[in-house]
Nucleic acid binder design. Structure first.
Lengths: 342, 342
DNA sequence: GATTTAACCGAAAACGTTTTCGATTCTTCA
DNA sequence: TGAAGAATCGAAAACGTTTTCGGTTAAATC
């Protein structure tokens, strides 16, 4: 059961491989008649071009790489869905790798993708990534690179993000608007830009409203696989250390849900005793009790947009007209639910 | 910035391409000295073998294809995670496609993967798949194929599943054990084997316990993107048509959660008025209120196992010792939670 | 010193495709 | 009728690697 090649079609029709190739690709210098014959035979023999050979010849694989910190994650799996849906439209395949929030793995995986010679790379950084030489390596090879969500400002490539700072400001302002006076923040890991920005948005909202910023009210969580547990842990800690807190802005919904679970267990009423705003709008947030106020983060759209940008850059480089990096900011919105409904 | 090739290394060292290639792959007929020189230069030049050429020569791509009905789905994203974690260990990359529960798309995607010449294919069938010629096409080409979760019994390939019938029996028996007398079932779509098996398990449990089987108590949902809504809709319908039902076994957690939401809205108490058992053990089920009794379905393990099996078959075919198909059944367990705690 | 053996290296073919460029045939028109 | 032009085709090189097999040199053996 050897796969059919151009050669076999050529031999059966007593013409050259060249002509067969050209006929199948509708070159103008092949007669209608031969084109017909070739295409017919190709169909009956179920000819499929050998991608390996095509890739070698054309130097492109119509494949892109995607590195993502975690897969089992409402936001990220929506991003994946957005990416592959868009990629499919353009005839691209997507190789997915999970960095597990590890810088070392991320580095290895980029090496892997580069040696695999994908046409471009999409990445959302691991929490642990502080050094960016592995990313610059991609750019040095003139391979398109687009970062999304968890980005590094310093790297010179296109980015698709939301305005985390503004969104966090909005979330915090909402807590203030409903009357919270002492607002805590469960922030993400220290390095990622988005958790920094969300923290800054929180802080700025406090100060703009003449509320004191108290660093001891800021709790850190890594937001890895253990997000839920971290939320519980931080909530427990908060109740011990600061029983006067009446609102919390939490870096991500899963952590918020962990915290809510702990509060429920301890009989702390939401939103009466403590109001909570999460981040990301996980589906779960709309079905738990009380439902969780949160910031909508458009994962599917972000994936789509990121691929579109990558695609443009792939085309641009192919035509030897590389484009300057572009930063695309998507809209977000506050979703008000029961956890802040006093 | 052309990528480095064997030829360039060869020229710089004044040796042949052959020797360079062999040196890098530690052939015994290359002297230690030249091996040293070659490897060193390869490293300083940052040589990466051109995968396109290697693939063409070796006829394998170290890449597998994965077709899955939906990505944004707790169970399936766990499967994906399992697959790529295991694939990475063996040096394989995974191309992921989403069939969107569409037979047509599934067919196209298989064509795509075959023409991409992946080394093997993993698939969980779409709800709409009733014809299997596209799957047999894979087998005819002697490409390893492993199905998981949503399988077709008739196709002669390896499968990784759980014992859906037994698990459903267990779930239903549990409802009976806690005293339910009139138990409804929200089943999945008509075609997929697993929803058939779960239905059969439900039915058998009823009959074994001398409870009448009433077809009007079986509601269908497609379990696609709208699972949650379908759960709500079916719950609403059930309340209208059968207000004597005191237990429901529901095909999947997301549908169950939709139903619970509807019951909550209508003031129907769970588990007092109606006890509910779901299926799959989505994370969500442990944080909603009341927490949902369900069947644990080991997605991560299923992914790992499916890849392992595929890998074995890839190796076997390579050594021209193809193995007969194997059906692997993974364990499940009933997770008792509040939705059945009377 | 001659012969065998081992150690080391390289030429060349092959994988299947794409594309350039030259060759051939067929039209067309003066 | 002859030449120019159009239409059609194919030879060959190229992409970068792997592997077979034969060749050369050096070491070992008698």
């Amino acid at each position: 059961m050897k796969p059919v090649t151009l050669k076999e079609i050529a031999e059966q029709l007593n013409i050259s491989v060249t002509t067969v190739s050209k006929a199948l690709k509708d070159y103008p210098d092949v007669s209608k008649k031969t084109k017909g014959l070739v295409k017919e035979l190709a169909k009956t023999l179920n000819y499929k071009p050998n991608t390996f050979a095509v890739n070698l010849r054309t130097k492109e694989s119509k494949t892109i790489g995607l590195i993502i910190p975690v897969i089992v994650h409402h936001f990220f799996s929506n991003v994946i869905k957005g990416i592959i849906s868009q990629a499919e439209k353009k005839g691209y395949l997507v190789i997915i790798l999970q960095s597990n929030e590890s810088y070392e793995l991320e580095k290895k995986q980029i090496d892997l993708l580069l040696s695999q010679r994908v046409d471009g790379i999409l990445i959302s950084l691991a929490n642990g990534t502080a050094d960016f030489s592995h990313l610059n390596q991609i750019i040095d090879q003139e391979k398109p690179l687009v970062m999304f969500d968890k980005i590094a400002k310093i790297v010179k490539c296109s980015k698709v993000i939301i305005d985390d700072r503004k969104a966090a400001y909005l979330a915090t302002q909402h807590l203030i608007d409903i009357g919270c006076k002492r607002i805590a923040h469960f922030r993400g890991a220290l390095l990622p830009q988005n958790s920094i920005d969300r923290f800054l948005g929180y802080k700025k909202a406090l100060l703009d409203n003449n509320l004191p910023y108290d660093p001891s009210l800021v709790y850190i969580c890594e937001c890895g696989d253990m997000s839920f547990e971290e939320g519980k842990k931080n909530a427990k800690q908060l109740l011990i250390e600061h029983n006067d807190v009446d609102g919390i802005f939490i870096n991500t919904d899963l952590v918020a849900i962990g915290a809510m679970t702990e509060f429920n267990n301890q009989g702390v009423k939401i939103p009466e005793d403590i109001s909570i705003v999460g981040f990301s709008n996980w589906f779960m947030s709309s079905v738990i009790s009380p439902t969780l106020t949160t910031i909508d983060q458009p994962g599917f759209k972000m994936g789509k947009t990121a691929f579109k940008q990558l695609y443009k850059e792939i085309k641009a480089i192919k035509n030897e007209k590389p484009k300057p990096p572009k930063v695309i900011t998507l809209d977000t919105a506050l979703i008000e639910r029961e956890s802040t409904r006093k």
